[in-house]
Design a protein around this nucleic acid. Structure first.
Length: 573
RNA sequence: GCCAGGUUAGCACAAUGGUAGUGCAACGGUUUUGUAAACCGUAGGUUGGGGGUUCGACUCCCUUACCUGGCUCCA
């Protein structure tokens, strides 16, 4: 028999949990319970409202079932036999009807408990190990919010108590990296419960923000973009023409002035097209790459908000490329090169997940155009050596897209970069953007919506967790702090700080009355890249005593030597 | 928005129906300090908001806002 995989153990644990819950509670309807990357879950519908207080009882029952060490027995059955077995389990029966005619229907039986399941499973229940339930959640049947919400129980599986403990410690470590926690500890930003989803950036957090933004600005200017800025508040008439009023109104913040309705922009694209339309455009102007760090507001449902990663007010490193149909391929490839170049600077180029979303059922435009567009996206990925997975039918109704995803400290995926093809917005039905072609006729251009970092807010959230708050030198809000050993060294400390500020470094001085040890501890807790200790001895020798976050005490060196060091480390990227 | 669980001082947490505490941070004083926490003192709260039960509520019930974990959605 084949080896027992982690997936098999998790999936088998899910079966035993379903059995345990049915043993304990009455009138349990079971849905499905797959293994996940982390553990497993199972969805139930039962009159009893499950709570974490129920976990010990359920875990004990699962442990009892595991200890019985019963075999998991697979059997191929007829549709009728399976339906008979599932009598009264209407979610399961509904799932049974999904299985195409002619396909094998298998069941797994363990002890007195049988379930329709594709498998595979462990051979004996003891192979599962230790099961711990971790959390409880609601989940719509078949993932559709129109359906009933079921109760989902999540759990993890470990070989033994020691491995379980190690798993729990990993979760604790991830929590320590959580950007919401570090954001407060490092005094980067705060969120006000009275103003949900809006970020108050503190001096240090804003330093990271503008440093990142300036970096991105240099990158895009070098790549042929021009930066623009468009109004935050735009009139209803514009949103009606763009289609947002019909399709996006629920997510827009709407306001009124002198009987006219305005909306805070949820996207920058109409603004970019207004600029394009402000004068007659020639095919010689294309591609036109208009970048905008525009502040957008989206009224996201309260349940979706998450720290600074999912908010209601944010800025994307947004740009709109207005081009001809023929230019799409080259523009997408150019974008992918830029994205890869940028991600490399953060170490995100390696485990990057690229998703290509193709034509949905509900779409505009003919299929041939869609196919060409999808091919252009796929081609661009290949040209840059990026693997991608296809998400069939997940594209926007106006065009296919590429999404670039990064994983946070708690293993959640976040979409950062994206490039979306849009045939709709520039069309006559929408904002009616036109250029004069070589034939002297007017044509509608194609629009590419794209962002490399996604929203700056989300990207910074990911960076905080990625670096565990220890920003690389170029991004650190305070790159160096000078620590005078006492007031007597204060003048020399100030002179040193001035010299470093003169080369554009962000420098602080700890002039508090604390002892040196306490100053070092404080700077260390704040994760500063460099600390420079100065005292009478340094002043006499004309040196600095340097401490690096990565390497500890580096001993005495001259100011010039330190400057050489930070230049080599690229204190500006 | 939906399901579940939370909300106690700036932060991290305690107090299971009977006088709201501890640590760090803050503030004041003393100490002038050489590589991860000097010492002493002070102040800080209508226990998220509102309502109810009770002689008495941080504690029990209802309601509301927000947060957390998922689901749906999404940068």
């Amino acid at each position: 028999m084949s080896e027992v995989t982690e997936q098999m153990r998790r999936h088998s644990a899910a079966h035993l949990m379903a059995r345990a819950i049915q043993n304990i509670f009455d009138d349990v309807q079971v849905d499905i319970g797959p293994a996940t990357d982390e553990g497993f879950y199972y969805d139930f519908d039962l009159p009893h409202r499950l709570s974490p207080d129920d976990f010990p009882k359920i875990e004990a029952e699962i442990a009892r079932l595991i200890a019985l060490d019963e075999p998991f027995v697979r059997k191929v059955v007829s549709r009728e036999e399976c339906a008979k077995m599932l009598e009264g389990q209407h979610y399961k029966l509904d799932r049974l009807s999904d299985i195409p005619e002619g396909e094998d229907i298998s069941t797994y039986t363990v002890g007195d408990y049988a379930e329709m399941c594709r498998g595979p499973h462990v051979e004996h229940s003891k192979q599962i190990g230790v099961v711990k339930l971790t959390r409880l959640a609601g989940s719509y049947y078949r993932g559709d919010e129109k359906n009933k919400m079921l109760q989902r129980v999540y759990g993890v599986v470990a070989r033994d108590e020691a491995e379980l403990k190690a798993m729990m410690e990993r979760i604790e470590e991830a929590k320590r990296r959580d950007h919401r926690r570090l954001g407060v500890e490092l005094d980067l930003f705060h969120l006000d419960p009275e103003d949900p989803g809006q970020i108050f950036w503190h001096p240090k957090g804003w330093s990271v923000y503008v440093t990142l933004q300036d970096y991105m600005r240099r990158k895009i200017v070098a790549d042929g973009y021009q930066e623009v800025n468009t109004p935050a508040l735009m009139p209803r008439s514009l949103w009606e023409k763009s289609g947002h009023w019909d399709h996006y109104k629920a997510n827009m913040f709407i306001t009124e002035s002198e009987k006219r309705i305005f909306a805070v922009k949820p996207m920058n694209c109409p603004g970019a097209l207004e600029i394009f339309k402000s004068r007659m455009r020639s095919y010689k102007d294309l591609p036109l790459r208009l970048a905008e760090f525009g502040h957008c507001a989206r009224n996201e449902p309260s349940g979706t908000l998450h720290g600074i990663m999912r908010v209601r007010g944010f800025v994307q490193d947004d740009a709109h490329i207005i081009c001809t149909q023929d230019q799409i391929g080259e523009e997408v490839a150019k974008f992918c090169r830029l994205l890869k170049d940028v991600y490399k600077d953060f170490g995100f180029d390696k485990n990057l997940l690229v998703k290509l979303s193709t034509m949905p059922e509900d779409h505009v435009g003919d299929e041939a155009t869609w196919q060409r567009a999808e091919a252009a996206l796929a081609e661009a990925c290949k040209a840059c050596g990026m693997d991608y997975v296809i998400q069939p039918g997940e594209g926007a109704f106006y065009g296919p897209k590429l999404e670039f995803k990064i994983t946070d400290a708690l293993a959640r995926e976040w979409q950062c970069g994206t490039i979306q093809l849009d045939y709709q917005l520039p069309s006559a039905e929408r904002l009616n953007a036109e250029y004069v072609g070589p034939d002297g006729q007017k044509h509608h251009p194609v629009m590419l919506h794209r962002a490399v970092l996604g929203s700056l807010e989300r990207f910074i959230g990911i960076l905080i967790e990625h670096y565990a708050g220890a920003f690389p030198l170029w991004l650190a809000p305070e790159q160096v702090r000078v620590l005078p050993v006492s007031d007597k060294a204060l003048a020399y400390a100030e002179k040193t700080a001035e010299a470093l500020r003169a080369i554009g470094m962000r420098v602080g001085i700890d002039s508090s009355a604390e002892k040196l040890g306490a100053k070092i501890r404080a700077a260390t807790m704040e994760k500063l890249p460099y600390q420079i200790v100065v005292g009478p001895r340094d002043e006499a020798n004309g040196t600095l005593s340097v401490r690096s976050r990565a390497e500890g005490d580096l001993g005495a060196m001259t100011l010039d030597a330190f400057i050489e060091r930070v230049k080599a480390e690229k204190y500006v990227l």
